[in-house]
Design a protein around this nucleic acid. Structure first.
Lengths: 190, 190
DNA sequence: ACTTGCCTATCTATACATAGGTAGTTATCA
DNA sequence: TGATAACTACCTATGTATAGATAGGCAAGT
C-alpha cells in the first residue's frame, strides 16, 4: 500500500521531528519537505496537526505496552526487567532525541486536550509498571528499598525523562548511565 | 525609570510565558499584548528574540548564583542545603511552570547558539554545586552514599527538571516531593 | 464509476523584523 | 537661560516568511 507507506513515513518522520525539536517547532511544511510530499498530502492523511499528534501518541502508547509485555515475558528477575526498562530510554538517548512523551509534556499547556490526555496516560502507565516491578522485587526479597515504591517509581520516570532532556544540553557521557547506577544503588541492586 | 520598568516587565513576562508554553510557542505578539505594548517596542529593548532569550538566561543564571550563595551562607548542614536547593524547584512546581532552563533544554536543537551555551552552563553549575554538597556531607560523616556523588548529582538535577516537566501532565501530588524523599533516602538522610 | 493518494493553487493568520516618525527628557554651552 | 542637539521609549505602517488549512483537480487502481 502506498497509503500505508506514506502515512507511516509521515508518522515516523513527525515523531522524530517532535523528539528533536518539540511539538511547536515542528511544522507541516518541515514534515512535508523532509518526507518529500506537499503539506496538503499530510492533511489528507491527518486532517489537522492535532490529529497527527494524537495518532502519534496512540502508536507510541501501543508500542510501550508491547515493550513492557516483552520485558515481562523475557525478563527473569525484577532487577533485570527494570534494567530493560531503563535501557529503552538509554537507546533513545543514544539517538540524541528525547522521549516523544517528554517532549510533549514540556509543551503541555499548548497541546490539544486529546494529546494532553494521551501524555498523562503514558506517564502514569510507566510509573505504575515500575512501581509494580519494585514491589514484586521487594516482596521476593530480591530488592531492598528504604522509601516507598511509589516515590521510587515517580523519581525514576522523572529522572529518565529529565535525563533525556538534559543530555543534549549537558553533553558528556550519557546521563542515563548515572541515573541507572543511582537507581539500582538505591535498591541495593547494582 | 520607565525604561527599566518596561524592560523588566518584558523579561518577567517573557520568562513566565516560556516556562508555561516553551520557547517556540511564545511570540513577540503574545508578549506584547500581555504586557500592553507593541511588538516593535520589544524589538527596541531586545533587538531579536535570541537577544531576549539570552538576556533572560543571563538574569536567570545570576539569580541562581545568588540563590546558591544564599543557601551556602545560611544553611547549617549539607543536608539542609540540599533540601533548600530542592525547595527552589519545589516552589516552581507550585507555580505550575517548569524551570526556564528545562523548558529551553527541551527545545535545545532549535535554540540560537548563545542560548544553548547558557543552558549548558546553568545545568553544569547545578550539578557541580550539588556534587560539592554531597561530597562535603559525606566527608563530614553527615551523609552516606553507596554510589558516586557525580551520579547522584546528575540524577538529582535530572529528576528535578524531569519532575517539573511531568508534574503538570501527571497531576496528583507534587512529583518533587517524591523526588526529595527518594533522594534523601539514598543519602541515608530522611 | 468510485475510491485512493496525491497534486496545484490559494487563503487567512501569525511570526519576526525593519523603517521611519514623534513626544518627552537630558546634555551642552553661547 | 534658553536654544539646540542628542537620546529615550515608545508608536504606526509595512515587509517577508511561514503556519495550518481548504478547494478542487487528476491519474491509477478496483
Amino acid at each position: 500500500m502506498t497509503n500505508n507507506d506514506t502515512a507511516t513515513q509521515l508518522l515516523d518522520t513527525a515523531q522524530l521531528l517532535i523528539q528533536k525539536r518539540g511539538y511547536n517547532a515542528f511544522s507541516y511544511k518541515h514534515l512535508a519537505t523532509t518526507v518529500g510530499v506537499r503539506t496538503s498530502s499530510i492533511h489528507y492523511h491527518f486532517q489537522t496537526k492535532a490529529d497527527l499528534g494524537k495518532a502519534l501518541m496512540d502508536r507510541y502508547l501501543a508500542e510501550l505496552e508491547q515493550a513492557l509485555d516483552n520485558i515481562d515475558r523475557k525478563g527473569r528477575t525484577n532487577k533485570a526487567k527494570l534494567k530493560q526498562f531503563i535501557s529503552l530510554y538509554r537507546e533513545t538517548e543514544d539517538d540524541g532525541v528525547v522521549c516523544l512523551c517528554g517532549s510533549l509534556a514540556t509543551d503541555y499547556e499548548t497541546l490539544p486536550v486529546a494529546l494532553q490526555r494521551a501524555v498523562s496516560t503514558y506517564l502514569r502507565r510507566c510509573e505504575q509498571w515500575v512501581a509494580e516491578k519494585i514491589d514484586e522485587g521487594v516482596g521476593e526479597g530480591e530488592l531492598a528499598l528504604s522509601g516507598s515504591s511509589t516515590d521510587a517509581a515517580a523519581t525514576l520516570v522523572a529522572s529518565l525523562q529529565g535525563g533525556l532532556i538534559l543530555s543534549r544540553a549537558r553533553g558528556g557521557p550519557p546521563v542515563l548511565d548515572n541515573v541507572q547506577r543511582t537507581f539500582l544503588a538505591a535498591l541495593n541492586a547494582s
